[in-house]
């Protein structure tokens, strides 16, 4: 199975491209190496799409946002400083793109939210948390996803959201408190229904 996957990859990419880390791929992409950029997108797409899906809860919009993030990456990859880690820089760009994406997109009316194209099978897992996240204000949801889902350190979340570290921590605590309350209420409802 692994050998098949390796063979499939070798059709498209040279062994060099696969051996490089994300920062090196970004540097090569700066020089116009589309093969390196494609490999970079291939490596990031799962987490980027997951992040977009958790934020928007709609598979079509998630693909749209993920694509916009990668196009933004392509346009800005020349600004990446190779001496610094790639991931924080990238997620900062992803967060900014997400904020701008939310600003310009037309909000879905509340009565149409049920018609959103959710991913089959995924929402069955920890549905209470997923519902609680969906109810969270985007200003709270974004730092939560950046920190806990994309594994961005608090200072990088702060930088990407143009907040101070203290304000970011406070926002994360507030978001977690709101989620905790929603989860506790859901637990209470579930226990009342079962008795």
């Amino acid at each position: 199975m692994h050998a098949q996957a390796a063979d499939a990859l070798s059709v498209t990419f040279s062994p060099d491209a696969r051996a490089l880390h994300a920062g090196q791929l970004a540097r090569q992409a700066t020089g116009g190496d589309m093969e390196a950029f494609e490999e970079l997108v291939r490596r990031l797409q799962r987490r980027v799409y997951g992040f977009a899906y958790q934020h928007l809860r709609d598979v079509n919009e998630a693909q749209d946002l993920a694509q916009e993030i990668f196009v933004k990456l392509y346009r800005n990859v020349a600004r990446y400083d190779e001496t610094r880690p790639f991931e924080p820089w990238f997620w900062k760009l992803a967060a900014n793109t997400t904020i701008n994406y939310r600003r310009k997109r037309v909000p879905i009316p509340t009565d149409q939210i049920v018609d959103r194209a959710v991913a089959p099978g995924v929402d069955d897992h920890d549905s209470e948390l997923i519902d609680a996240l969906a109810q969270l204000d985007p200003a709270y949801r974004l730092p939560v996803l950046l920190h806990y889902y994309a594994d961005l350190p608090v200072d990088q979340v702060a930088a990407s959201m143009r907040l101070t570290v203290a304000a970011t921590k406070s926002r994360l605590h507030r978001a977690r408190a709101l989620l905790r309350n929603a989860l506790a209420e859901a637990d209470e409802r579930n226990s009342q229904q079962s008795t």
């Binding site: 196009v71 806990y148 506790a184 637990d187």
Partner: peptide, 26 residues
């Protein structure tokens, strides 16, 4: 709930990206 929440957040499952994403980007 407060203790388990960060772990639950990190374990959150997301759908796989559609196969059309990479060709669409490129």
């Amino acid at each position: 709930q407060a203790v388990s929440l960060p772990f639950r957040m990190r374990a959150l499952r997301s759908p796989l990206p559609p196969v059309t994403l990479l060709p669409a980007v490129m």
